[in-house]
């Protein structure tokens, strides 16, 4: 696909607006379980991020050897390690150090 066109930016913008409003009204308007709403909202965010990366930042449109996406994927790996690792460790630290409520 051609990089940086009016069509691409319009698609990115309209997609962003729709997904933002969808996420907002999912939270404000629904009374379902918190976990289900959280997962739906997270899914909206991931889709919107993918739209921004593709239509705005032209990720995935470059020719071989794909350096941009290689660096991007490495960043995703580090991000997942930092965020998931921190939450995992701190949750278990809390759990193991918490005085027993008995």
């Amino acid at each position: 696909m051609e990089q940086g066109t009016f069509r691409a930016y319009s698609a990115g913008f309209i997609g962003s607006l729709l997904l933002t409003l969808a996420a907002y009204f999912t939270v404000v308007g629904s009374h379902g379980p918190k976990l289900g709403i959280d997962l739906a909202v997270a899914a909206f965010a991931v889709v919107q991020a993918a739209l921004v990366l593709y239509f705005y930042l032209d990720l995935g449109k470059e020719s071989k050897p794909h350096w941009n996406i290689t660096v991007f994927l490495f960043m995703v790996l580090v991000t997942v390690l930092i965020v998931a690792g921190s939450i995992w460790i701190m949750y278990h630290l809390n759990y193991n150090l918490m005085p027993k409520h008995s």
């Binding site: 940086g4 930016y9 990115g12 962003s16």
Partner: peptide
């Protein structure tokens, strides 16, 4: 979101 769009238009 609107500012990202206007930035894209500017770059065109």
């Amino acid at each position: 979101a609107a500012s990202a769009f206007t930035c894209g238009i500017a770059s065109l």
